[in-house]
Simulated assay, not measured.
Amino acid sequence: MSPESPYAPLLASIPLTVSEVSVLGSRTRYWVYSPADAERTVVIVHGYRGEHHGIEPIIANLPGVRFVSPDLPGFGESTPLTETDHSVAGYSAWLVAFVDALELEAAPIVLGHSFGSIVVSHAVAGGMRPLALILVNPIATSGLKGPRQWLTGLTVFYYGLAKKLPARWGRRLLGSWVIVQLMSSSMAKTKDRALRRWIHREHHTYFSRFASRDVVVEGFAASISADVSEFAAQITVPTLLVAARLDDITPVEAQYDLTEAIAGSTLVVLDDVGHLIHYEVPELAASAITDFLDTLPAS
């Protein structure tokens, strides 16, 4: 995490190891936050254009849980997939193979944030059997049906333009400081100026750590090609949804519909926050996760 992180002291107390494994042609780098007495293991799938740093504030507030947090192929420090494409199905196949490669003693809990919620739901619907599922800011309905349609349309145009431009110029557009700042400013809901500055720094530091223009464009196409509701009927493991009332990507009404569609699932809606639960109110997300973990059988 960056030096200004308000969660750095908590995170520093958790033992950390970094490893790497080859999965479907991707040299996947992953971080294990593992207290010696951890009874639960949670495998994380982060959101689109994010990487493992983004979920660290939640990890910092759950010191008794072992987290395995990889960078998605093509983002952060993980190389792109070569044996499949960067689609929802491709990332889902990667997730299944990645968890298998970990050779865990017991089935883990799987946490998906934003785009990651689509990937993990696809994997579970396809037969993956984690102990439980946690969806933070789940994409409960099509990303093209968000509450702010003008912003959605602008985003689609932006990625379409990046795809049409020569690769060099497309990459420069995708990494534009101005564009990243506009994105960060529109998504942050907190009125805390210091926290907003830190959120913007996080986005400027990590949002453009991608392997190529093509990986980003393929990933965006994947992010708007499906949503969790498509797989809801096939999700039969205990599931927690942590949603935000002010989410600009998924309207909160869709989260209630998704909860009804996933049998036996639990929904926690956080007020006064949008699509950045992991940055703005990680302690509230951690509290909801703790309550959920307490309802699960022992590993």
Rank of each mutant, 00 (worst) to 15 (best):
M1K: 00
S5H: 00
S5G: 02
P6R: 09
Y7T: 07
L11H: 10
L11T: 02
L11P: 04
A12V: 05
S13N: 11
S13I: 04
L16T: 13
V21N: 11
S22K: 13
L24Y: 07
Y30R: 14
W31H: 15
Y33R: 14
Y33K: 04
A38P: 04
A38E: 09
E39A: 14
E39M: 10
R40G: 03
V42S: 12
V45D: 15
V45P: 02
G47A: 07
Y48F: 07
R49A: 12
E51F: 03
H52G: 04
E56A: 13
P57I: 11
P57C: 07
I59F: 03
N61A: 15
L62H: 05
P63L: 07
G64L: 11
F67W: 08
P70I: 10
D71K: 13
D71T: 12
P73Q: 14
P73R: 14
E77F: 13
E77W: 12
S78H: 13
T79W: 11
P80Y: 09
S87H: 08
S87L: 10
V88L: 10
Y91M: 12
Y91N: 12
L95S: 15
L95N: 14
L104D: 01
E105M: 05
E105F: 01
P108H: 01
P108M: 03
I109M: 03
V110H: 01
H113F: 02
H113D: 00
F115E: 00
I118A: 00
V120M: 02
S121H: 08
A123C: 06
G126W: 05
R129Y: 10
L131S: 15
I134D: 05
L135P: 10
I139N: 01
I139T: 03
G146W: 15
R148T: 10
Q149T: 06
W150D: 09
W150G: 06
L151H: 09
T152L: 01
G153S: 06
G153R: 11
Y159D: 00
A162Y: 03
L165N: 00
P166R: 02
P166N: 02
A167N: 03
G170V: 09
R171H: 07
G175H: 03
S176K: 03
V178G: 01
V178C: 00
I179V: 11
M183Y: 11
M183V: 14
R193Q: 08
I199Y: 02
H203P: 00
H203E: 08
Y206W: 11
F207N: 02
S208E: 06
R213Q: 14
R213C: 14
V217Q: 10
V217S: 08
F220V: 08
F220H: 13
A221R: 15
A221Y: 14
S225D: 05
F231K: 05
T239Q: 08
A244R: 12
A244T: 08
R245S: 12
R245Q: 12
L246N: 10
D248E: 13
P251A: 08
Q255R: 05
Y256K: 12
E260Y: 09
I262M: 04
A263W: 04
A263V: 08
T266Q: 14
L267N: 08
V268L: 07
L270E: 02
G274A: 13
G274T: 09
H278N: 12
H278T: 13
E280V: 04
E283L: 06
E283T: 07
A288Q: 00
I289N: 00
I289L: 01
L293R: 01
L296T: 05
